[in-house]
Design a protein around this nucleic acid. Sequence first.
DNA 1: CGCGTTTGACCCGCGC
DNA 2: GCGCGGGTCAAACGCG
Length: 348
Amino acid sequence: MDPWISTQPSLSLDLRVGLPATAAVAMVKPKVLVEEDFFHQQPLKKDPEVAALEAELKRMGAENRQLSEMLAAVAAKYEALQSQFSDMVTASANNGGGGGNNPSSTSEGGSVSPSRKRKSESLDDSPPPPPPPHPHAAPHHMHVMPGAAAAGYADQTECTSGEPCKRIREECKPKISKLYVHADPSDLSLVVKDGYQWRKYGQKVTKDNPCPRAYFRCSFAPACPVKKKVQRSAEDNTILVATYEGEHNHGQPPPPLQSAAQNSDGSGKSAGKPPHAPAAAPPAPVVPHRQHERVVVNGEQQAAAASEMIRRNLAEQMAMTLTRDPSFKAALVTALSGRILELSPTKD
DNA sequence: CGCGTTTGACCCGCGC
DNA sequence: GCGCGGGTCAAACGCG
């Protein structure tokens, strides 16, 4: 993600307060160009007013440069923090993931096991098999909804003697993300096309929602621990809420060449045996919430979508960082007040 | 016949 | 301890 920042050498700040961050970042230079053209097209009216405006423009330009430097500093800080964060993530993946200090989810490695086996396993005193190395390759937090707990990177505290295991289980919960998909209300199939192959293993009517909830497991790789719950929104029947748990430990299945998006969800019967792709898991291929039953069908489009998401996230984070920076605020206030004073009718 | 879905039953955690 | 509700299992069923 950082490459995008580095490709923006001079994010000349165009102080458009109130606009979305993405827009503010996207349109930088045009305004300056227009103003320059404005001056160039009126060279004859070189009266004091124009001179004053020119001086003001120079002043603004200087401020612009200053703000750009501040922005660069913020971006550098962001990069540093980002790399620090990824280091921590990889470190924790190496320590906790394979270290054997993983009290929950030990059953994920085996193809089967969960609850019912647990009883017989508890009778059997054989220790649970060591968990497979947790991939954690690429956190796909992009489409994690703010309310959805992304507990994947919760600090992996050990089970201290006094701590209730409940807490441990909570912290070691697989990463959860939510996806909102717009679907035809007449379509009763709880199908969310996200590019992976899913096998339905259950359906249940829950208390708070008359619409049934469907349970899916990733059927692309036998050992893939990812599960998915799909349920229509109680408020809006046209919205499917897909809740993903865990991370894929395999690559995305190749898109079908023909009849794209027909079978991409695993709802199709002929799942077949897809070629194995043991590469590190890419982020779950999708999808800003509220896609309109639209599937990213090839890698290029996925890359583009992911890149777009990254840029958007980055822009939003930078905007947040900037708005939290008091010095940036001060500079902004100075610039704006200067501009307001300059435009005020009492000016003489 | 093989594979995926359906669906009723069971298990287990949690709150009271 | 008990009941409730969510999650999972597995036999039955359907389809190609």
